[in-house]
């Protein structure tokens, strides 16, 4: 396998995606906006408008002084166990947008004929396209989680004189992100033969987000405890899911699929 060709495909796909402001601006601006807005809202509620939801978890925070306990514990709980899983949807959406543009976009723009008539191997093509979706997603995830975490810590330190992040669960949420991206990309590879355009591919791959969206609600209502053990198990499950879906996607991918 000639990785130079894969690299050329990756760079070309990224140039296409990032030459269109209409695609990359919402993809970057929306998560960054929420990375700033969510901590501020959490901080506001924790400091000025703490509701009964925090009292549900008060028993876990004896280590924090009694005058700060409600606000700090609520902020920590909300930042990690409610908004953390919400941010896990971001890599799925980002990867879906890029992967759909990369695979189904070739079909829609009718550029695939020229691409596939070159001596590129299917493996070189797939590696290039998968990395074109995965790398910017990982980068954006790190940036967004970085902004989010820094804002949380800054506000928590100002209000409660303590840093809330990182925790093991928080780090595990970040570690899950590439595997969530891969799941979305795998679905795009798998459906690329059955869809006629970018929107269809995006919509189908976005379905991966549904189980993730259950997590914050499950956490609030006490259905799951989002402990590190839970996230380890989720990580293992996701790795297995990715391996299966990418394997099936690659095995079932035929050049004609994107013609």
């Amino acid at each position: 396998m000639d990785l130079k060709k894969s690299y050329a495909v990756m760079v070309n796909d990224l140039s296409e995606v990032f030459s269109s402001r209409a695609i990359y601006m919402p993809m970057i601006a929306v998560p960054v906006f929420f990375a700033l807005l969510f901590p501020i809202l959490t901080f506001y509620i924790s400091t000025y408008n703490l509701s009964g939801i925090a009292t549900r978890i008060i028993g876990t925070a004896e280590q924090i002084s009694s005058t700060q306990v409600n606000g700090a514990v609520f902020m920590s709980y909300f930042a990690i166990y409610v908004l953390g899983p919400t941010f896990m949807t971001m890599p799925i959406f980002t990867a879906s947008v890029i992967a759909a543009d990369s695979f189904a976009g070739e079909k829609e723009r009718r550029t695939s004929e020229a691409l596939l008539s070159t001596p590129i191997k299917t493996s070189e093509l797939l590696v290039g396209k998968i990395f074109a979706s995965l790398l910017p997603t990982i980068l954006l995830t790190l940036v967004v989680f970085g902004i989010y975490g820094s804002t949380i810590n800054y506000l928590a330190f100002k209000a409660f004189d303590t840093y809330l992040l990182p925790t093991t669960s928080w780090i595990l949420i970040i570690l899950l992100s590439p595997f969530l991206s891969l799941a979305a990309i795998g679905v795009v590879v798998l459906v690329s033969s059955h869809v006629s355009g970018i929107k269809e591919a995006q919509q189908i791959s976005s379905l991966v987000v549904l189980p993730v969206l259950v997590l914050p609600f499950a956490s609030i209502f006490g259905i799951f405890d989002l402990t590190p053990t839970f996230f380890y198990e989720l990580l293992a499950l996701l790795i297995l899911f990715d391996a299966v879906i990418i394997y099936i996607g690659i095995k079932s991918f035929k050049k004609e699929n994107i013609l």
Binding site: N12, E16, R109, R110, T111, S112, A114, S117, T118
Partner: peptide, 16 residues
Amino acid sequence: GRVSLLSDNYALYDKL
């Protein structure tokens, strides 16, 4: 690699 196909559409990346 020894064949080149010029199809009836241009198959160029418009944004590049």
